[in-house]
């Protein structure tokens, strides 16, 4: 199997306690994997480990079939993987929107002219062209998030790691974000507490609990409680999943 990103028994401590404790993950090409878990479960930490911002104390990170250990390893990974931060203020730092979106393409070696053209085209594609000249720190929270995503997409990543992409978006922008993500070819790992969004986007789900990843399913129970939810696989649900697999 050709997982684009994988974790093998990763152990990672933050602030003294083990946030990841033998986590195994395989992200297959083309899938959109939902990663759920309680606040503080370690979802953000897991994403950071995948791009080399956190170093595991045990286990390994494998990207595109190659184990990654040090900064140079991860630099080649970051060309192909984009991480959308939970807080867009951490991501936007250029004075204006178009410069921020052009930042990645410039680092990829595009000429300034080409990079700004790429930035413009990306903003157009996301319907954000009206923000191009704006000062980044004067944008609203929702606008910042969309611009941060534009900054990633301008680098045409094969894999997107999204940390709560619909957080703080109003209905219109949330719908826009979902349409946009649904229309992308990229492989995705989506961290979110927004269940309807996950139901729409995700092709598979895992839950992070006690430092480990377990398969989970996103579904609505038939009436009388059609409310959407996600949980681990107890026997009932395992059965449901098997039926679904047989149908597919």
């Amino acid at each position: 199997m050709s997982a684009v990103l994988a974790l093998d028994g990763v152990v990672l401590a933050r602030g003294g306690s083990r946030v990841l404790d033998g986590a195994d993950l395989r992200l297959e090409r083309g899938e959109r994997l939902a990663l759920v878990g309680a606040n503080g479960a370690g979802k953000t930490t897991l994403l950071r480990a995948l791009v080399g911002l956190e170093k595991p104390t045990a286990g390994r990170v494998v990207a595109f079939g190659r184990p990654c250990a040090d900064e140079p390893d991860f630099r080649t990974v970051r060309r192909r993987v984009g991480l959308l931060f939970q807080d867009p203020d951490d991501q936007l730092f250029c004075p204006t929107v178009q410069e921020d979106v052009a930042f990645g393409p410039l680092n990829l070696g595009e000429t300034p002219k080409a990079a700004f053209a790429t930035a413009r085209a990306t903003l157009d594609r996301l319907g954000l062209d009206h923000l191009a000249e704006r000062i980044t720190h004067r944008l609203s929270g929702g606008e910042k998030r969309l611009v941060a995503l534009a900054g990633l997409l301008a680098m045409a990543p094969e894999v997107l790691l999204l940390d709560e992409p619909t957080n703080a978006l109003d209905d219109a922008n949330r719908a826009r974000m979902l349409d946009l993500l649904a229309g992308l070819d990229a492989t995705m790992l989506i961290v979110s507490h927004d269940r309807p969004a996950l139901e729409r986007l995700a092709t598979r789900a895992v839950v992070l609990q006690g430092g480990r990843l377990e398969p989970a399913i996103i579904h609505r129970h038939p009436c009388p409680t059609p409310a959407l939810h996600i949980h681990g696989l107890d026997d009932d649900h395992r059965h449901e999943l098997e039926t679904a697999a047989r149908r597919a």
């Binding site: 791009v51 911002l53 630099r75 970051r78 060309r79 984009g82 991480l83 931060f85 807080d87 203020d89 951490d90 991501q91 730092f93 250029c94 004075p95 204006t96 178009q98 410069e99 052009a102 930042f103 990645g104 410039l106 680092n107 990829l108 300034p112 002219k113 990079a115 700004f116 900054g151 990633l152 680098m155």
Partner: peptide, 23 residues
């Protein structure tokens, strides 16, 4: 914040060159 911003820049492959102003 400074630390996270620097991480964000590294993720977008920044290696010490300076952002360029729009023409």
């Amino acid at each position: 914040r400074a630390e996270r911003v620097e991480e964000g820049m590294r993720l977008r492959l920044w290696q010490g060159a300076l952002p360029v102003a729009a023409p």
